[in-house]
Amino acid sequence: MTRFTVNDRPVQFEMDPRTPLLWALRDAANLTGTKYGCGVGDCHACTVMVDGAALRSCLITLAECEGRFVVTVEGLSRDRSHPVQQAMVAEQAVQCGFCTPGIVMSAAALLARNANPSEAEVKAAIPNLCRCGVQPRLVRAIQRAAAVARREEKIDAAPVPGGSGRIPAMVPDTKGQTP
């Protein structure tokens, strides 16, 4: 039984240790943000961070994860506040959203090691396939995320999950208004 850390929590999976991480995350841990697109490393939709590096979770087995730190898209931030998440929403570099978690993780891993990536560096770091065609927006979105991470810019594009308090001006307050 392999033990490692997923999104800051210690976990152990009662599964065949040859099981690729992707299926352990999705089917056992119910972390379904990591997507299955091909299972053989072509599409990068299943990209997660393992010890800070962007890896395709379909290509790494549970046994190989022993003792390592895995971060999935669910663990990137508690409230969509990671600069890549905010910039992807602000630039609308998302359509159907199926490849998005993988792109977000590839980009987050890039920014973690390179605070100011050039266009060529962004292109080299995002091998993810996207069929809806968000490619024309990705370089700008990821460079904008880098600027936010360097605190040169602020974005507030993606509201926090859950509706409560997201529209303060709309909170019912009829005192003094009713005749």
Partner: peptide, 15 residues
């Protein structure tokens, strides 16, 4: 802004 994007960047959008 598109309503569906925030939940698509944190993995909570459901397929």
């Amino acid at each position: 802004p598109r309503l569906d994007l925030p939940s698509k960047v944190d993995g909570s959008w459901t397929f």
